[in-house]
Amino acid sequence: MSHDLRHRVGDENIALFGGDEDADLTAVRVAIYLEDALAITLPPRLLDAAHLGTPEALATTLDGLLGPA
């Protein structure tokens, strides 16, 4: 299941980054997507740029949520 979810998120997240808003707002955009895709509610500590604001941060966060790729 984790592999499927990771695959799904990997394919689809390409459109999430690259906006002109600040990184924390990008993190909110990513969080909206991620909660839809994984049917979860993210804990408050993850809703920031350090965890979701860049593709690299998202990858690390997904490792924590789904286990390493």
Partner: peptide
């Protein structure tokens, strides 16, 4: 109550 979630309005 989450300030981060409230910011979604700005999008």
């Amino acid at each position: 109550e989450s300030p981060s979630r409230a910011r979604a309005v700005e999008l």
